[in-house]
Design a protein around this nucleic acid. Structure first.
Lengths: 193, 193
DNA sequence: GTCTATAGTGGGATAGAC
DNA sequence: GTCTATCCCACTATAGAC
C-alpha cells in the first residue's frame, strides 16, 4: 500500500517508464533494476515482490485517470449549476458525457499500456489504497442517472477503448463516429427498457 | 491456415481443452504434447510454431461465435420477414438486438478463456482463413443501422463482457440490468448526433 | 541498500537418430 | 511421426557478505 522505502517513488516512476514503453511484459525485476542502475535482488529491499510494484503502478494509473475525468467534469460542459444562470436544460448531461468520453479515451490512448495494466484482469484490491477505484468511477456515476445505465456507459467506453487499442477496427474506421453514436444513445433519455 | 497434418484437428481440440481449463498461459507446447501423449518436439511436425496453434484456436472460436450469433439471429425475434405476415414493425430491431446480446454474453461466459484469446490483442490476420472475422461481425451489422452505431454496440458488448470476466463489477451488481440499459439505449432510435 | 552467487522453474525451439 | 538429447533463453526470488 504505502511506500516501503523512501526512494520507492523513484522506483515506481522507473517502472512506469518501462510499462509505457513496452507493455506489462516489459516490466521485469531485472529490467527495472537495470533502469535504476542496480541489480535485481536489491529491489527486494524496496518491494516484497513484483506484484507490489504492479499494485503501485495500478494505483498511480487509477489516480491519474480519476484526476483526468474530474478535470473534464469541471471544465467541459456548464456544470457550475449553482452560479450564473441556471437555465442549462438538457444539454448539460449530453455535453458532460461527451466531455467525459473524450477525456477517458484520450487518457487511454495516451497511456495504452498503463490503461491495460489498470483495467486487465481482476484488481489486486487488497494491495490498493482504499477509495482509488471508487474515485475513478465517481465522475461517471455523478453524471449518469442510475446504476445500470452508468455501468452500460462504462462498458461502452471500456469496450471501444479496448477494441481501438487492440487494433480491432478496420483501417479506415471512423472511431470518433462510433463514440458519438454510442454516447448520444445515452443522452436523450435513459430509455426505460 | 489449413491443417498441416491430417491429425492436426485432434491437436487443436486438445489445445482448446488446455485453454478452456487454464487460460492462454496454460497452453504451452509441453503441456499440449503431454495431453496428446507425445513429446513436445513432435508437435513441430504438425505446426510450424506456437502461434500457428493459437491461430487455429482463434479461428475455431470466431467460427463458433459466428454460429452462435447466427442462431440467435434466426431463432430470436421474428426475422423471417420473407414469409408469414410481414408486419413486425419496430419490435424486430429491439428484440433481435436483445437476443444477439444474450447470445454474445452467453458464449463469452461459457468459454471465458477462449473469448479472451479470440478478442485480446491484435488478430493474427495473416494466419486466419479469409472471412472468419467478417462472419462473426455480420449478424450485428445486419441488425444495426449504420456503421457507427454497429461499432458502438460491439464496443458495448465487448466492454460489458470484459468487465464481467475480469470481475470488475461490485459483488452485488445487477449485470443483467446493465445489459438491458445499454442495449435499450440503441433500440428506440439511432438518436441523431 | 547494495552486492555476488545461485537456486529453481518454466518456456520455445532445433538436430539428428529411428 | 515420434523419439532423445539439448540449447538457449527468461523469469522470480533467496542467502549471505559487505
Amino acid at each position: 500500500m504505502a511506500d516501503l522505502t523512501p526512494r520507492a517513488g523513484q522506483n515506481v516512476a522507473a517502472a512506469r517508464e518501462l510499462v509505457e514503453a513496452g507493455g506489462v511484459e516489459a516490466l521485469t525485476m531485472r529490467a527495472l533494476a537495470a533502469r535504476l542502475g542496480i541489480r535485481a535482488p536489491s529491489l527486494y529491499k524496496h518491494f516484497p515482490d513484483k506484484s507490489a510494484v504492479e499494485a503501485q503502478l495500478i494505483t498511480l494509473a487509477l489516480t491519474e485517470l480519476a484526476e483526468t475525468l474530474e478535470r473534464a467534469e469541471a471544465g467541459g460542459a456548464p456544470m457550475r449549476c449553482a452560479e450564473g444562470d441556471g437555465g442549462a436544460g438538457e444539454r448539460v448531461e449530453g455535453g458532460g458525457l461527451r466531455e467525459l468520453g473524450r477525456a477517458y479515451r484520450a487518457y487511454a490512448l495516451a497511456h495504452p499500456h498503463l490503461y491495460r495494466l489498470m483495467s486487465a484482469g481482476p484488481l489486486p484490491r487488497g494491495l490498493l489504497p482504499a477509495g482509488v477505484e471508487e474515485r475513478a468511477a465517481l465522475p461517471l456515476v455523478r453524471l449518469v442517472r442510475g446504476e445500470a445505465a452508468a455501468r452500460a456507459v462504462w462498458g461502452l467506453a471500456h469496450g471501444l477503448v479496448m477494441l481501438e487499442l487492440d487494433g480491432r477496427f478496420p483501417p479506415g474506421a471512423d472511431i470518433d463516429a462510433a463514440w458519438a453514436a454510442g454516447l448520444s444513445a445515452f443522452t436523450p433519455l435513459p430509455a426505460t427498457v
